[in-house]
Design a protein around this nucleic acid. Structure first.
Ligand SMILES: [Mn+2]
Ligand SMILES: [Mn+2]
Ligand SMILES: [Zn+2]
Ligand SMILES: [Zn+2]
Lengths: 140, 140
DNA sequence: ATTATTTTGCAACAAAGTTGCATCTGTTTA
DNA sequence: TAAACAGATGCAACTTTGTTGCAAAATAAT
C-alpha cells in the first residue's frame, strides 16, 4: 500500500508530501468515491482546506483521479483505474449512486453505451450516472 | 408566449407574480439550459437572488423544470417537456453539452439506453450527459 | 373593498471555493 | 552531507454560492 502510493506519485513526477500520501491512501483504501468534505473529515483536519483543494486539483490534472457528475451536483472524486494521464482521461465506465447508503462508485466493468445523436452532433465524451440500490444494500 | 406562461403557472396552481413570469419566459424563449447565474444576469438584476432561488425551487417541485448534472458540477435547469408533475419527473432523455459554444440542451428525442448492471444492483434512474460539438457549431 | 394567504426583499449568516504571499519541506546538485 | 533551488503548504483575506427568519408588499379569495 505504502509502495503503491509512492509508485503513483513518482510515476507522475510529483514530490512525495504528507498531504499527497495521505489523500492518495484514502482513495486506495476506499472502494467508493470521495467528496472534498469526506477527505477533510477523514484526514482528521490534519491539512489546510486549501491544500486539499490543491492536491485534488493536481491529481485531476495528472489523471490520477476523475470527477463524477451527480444528480445533486455535488463534486465527487474517484481513482482512475485505467491508463489515464496528463490531460488524457478515458474512464468510460458507468457510475453508480446508491440512494440507500449514499455511496457513489465506479462500475469499471460496465462500459458506457453508444448513443445515437441527432444529425450534426459529434460527441467526445459520454457520462452515465445510474441511481438505485447497490449490491450491499439489496442483500437484506 | 404570454399565454403559455400564464397557462403553465395556472395549471400548477401557482400565483402569477413578476419573477415567476419573467423567469418562465426566459426558459421558453431559450432552447438551452440555464444556470442560476444566467437567470440573475438576464433578468437584469430585477429580482433578489433569494427570489430566484426560491422560484427555481418551486418550479422544480412542480415539475416545470428539471436539473441537469454536468461534468463540471454546475447546476443547470431546463424546461420539462413531458408530463412531469409534482414529485413526478420522467425526463428520461439525453443531455448534450457543447464544448464549443457552451450551451447545454435537452435532446428530447434521444432516450436513455438500458444499462446492464452487475448482479445485485437495481436502478431507479439513469442520467446520460454527452459532451461534444453541437449542430450549430459543426456547421462551419 | 376587505381580508387572508403567498411571495418578496432585506439582512444576516453559512458553506464552498479562490488567491497572494511568506514560510516551510522535499529534491537536486556540488 | 550541506547548501541551493523549486515546489508545496498554511494563513489570511476575499469571492461566490446558497440558506434562513422576518417584516413588508403583492396576489388571490371573499
Ligand atoms: Mn469512475
Ligand atoms: Mn432535459
Ligand atoms: Zn448502498
Ligand atoms: Zn455549440
Amino acid at each position: 500500500m505504502q509502495e503503491a502510493v509512492q509508485d503513483i506519485l513518482k510515476k507522475n513526477q510529483l514530490s512525495i508530501t504528507g498531504s499527497r500520501v495521505k489523500i492518495l491512501e484514502l482513495f486506495l483504501e476506499q472502494q467508493g468515491a470521495l467528496a472534498h468534505g469526506d477527505i477533510e473529515r477523514r484526514t482528521g483536519e490534519k491539512f489546510d482546506r486549501v491544500t486539499v483543494y490543491r492536491t485534488l486539483q493536481v491529481f485531476l490534472n495528472k489523471g490520477i483521479i476523475h470527477t463524477i457528475p451527480t444528480s445533486d451536483n455535488s463534486v465527487l472524486y474517484a481513482l482512475c483505474k485505467d491508463d489515464c494521464g496528463e490531460g488524457h482521461h478515458h474512464d468510460n465506465h458507468v457510475h453508480f449512486v446508491c440512494d440507500d447508503c449514499g455511496t457513489t462508485m465506479c462500475l469499471d466493468d460496465v462500459t458506457v453505451p453508444v448513443i445515437r445523436l441527432p444529425k450534426g452532433f459529434k460527441f467526445t465524451q459520454i457520462q452515465v450516472v445510474v441511481n438505485g440500490r447497490c449490491k450491499d444494500c439489496n442483500r437484506d
